[in-house]
Design a protein around this nucleic acid. Structure first.
Lengths: 121, 121
DNA sequence: CTCATATGGTTTCTTTTAGATACTTACTTA
DNA sequence: TAAGTAAGTATCTAAAAGAAACCATATGAG
C-alpha cells in the first residue's frame, strides 16, 4: 500500500516532523553528531552562535522524536552525552547533503543574490 | 583547497543559506517544483496550509538565492510560473529525502514520542 | 448590469517563536 | 576565596509566522 501520510496535507503529523527537521539548528546538531556522541557544552562550542536555550530545546525535541539519545553519566560534574539513535542515523545522508550544500554552492548563491539585487527596483 | 566556507561558523554566509533551506515551506516548495513549473495559486492549493503571504515571501527569497525562476506571462489575468533553476535542481535529492523521510518514518517517530511522554515526568 | 470567480499578490494585526542575557546547583582547582 | 566547568532554567525583548482582509484587473453566469 501507499503511505498513510502525505507531507502536503495540512494536518498530517508528518508536517510536525518536517518542521522539526527543517530547522537550521536541528540540522547542524544532527550533522555534528554523525561522527559520534558529543556532550552538551561541546555542541555549544562547535555550533557557533547557538544559545544554550535553543540548544537545550532543540535537543529535547529531537530526543522526543527518537532521533537522538541522551545519556547521563554520574561523574562530577555530571556528564551528558548526546548521540544519534538508529532512526537518527537514517537521516545522515540527507542532513549532510543539505547542511553542506551551502558550503559547496555559496558562490553561486551570492552571485544570484547580487544579480537579483541589481535588477530594476 | 578546502572550502572557504564553514557551516559551523557563526558569521559564515552559508548560515543564511542554510536558514533558507532549513524551512518547512521552502522545502515543500522546492519539492513540489521538481516535476516542472507550477503557478502561484497552484502551489498555494497543493501545499495545504501555506498562507499567501508566506508563499509569496518564500518564493521571493528562493528566487533571490537563484534556486528558482519566476516567469510572467502577459495573459489575462496574468500568469506567473515558478520553476527550479539549474542550481535548484542540484538540491532535488536532498530535498526529497528530507521532505519525505517523515512519511516513511512517521510511525517510528510517533512511537518514540509516546514512549518519551510516558516516562517519568 | 451585477454578482461571483479567477489571477497574483500586499497590508495589517495578533500570536508565536527566537535570541540574548543572566541565573542556578554542585563540585574542583588555583 | 574566587574562578572555572558542567548542564541546564528563567526572563525579557525583538523578530517572524500566521490569519484575515484588501487590491487591481478581467471574465463568465445569471
Amino acid at each position: 500500500m501507499e503511505f498513510a501520510y502525505d507531507i502536503y496535507e495540512n494536518r498530517c503529523p508528518t508536517r510536525l516532523v518536517l518542521d522539526r527537521l527543517a530547522d537550521k539548528w536541528a540540522l547542524l546538531i544532527l550533522d555534528r553528531l554523525q561522527s559520534g556522541p558529543v556532550r552538551f557544552n561541546q555542541l555549544k562550542r562547535d555550533i557557533k552562535g547557538i544559545s544554550q536555550k535553543v540548544l537545550s530545546q532543540t535537543l529535547k525535541k529531537l530526543e522526543r522524536d527518537g532521533l537522538l539519545v541522551r545519556e547521563v553519566f554520574p561523574t562530577v560534574p555530571v556528564t551528558v552525552e548526546y548521540s544519534l539513535s538508529e532512526l537518527g542515523t537514517t537521516l545522515n545522508e540527507s542532513v549532510s547533503a543539505l547542511a553542506h550544500w551551502a558550503e559547496h554552492n555559496m558562490d553561486a548563491v551570492l552571485a544570484a543574490q547580487s544579480e537579483y539585487d541589481n535588477r530594476a527596483p
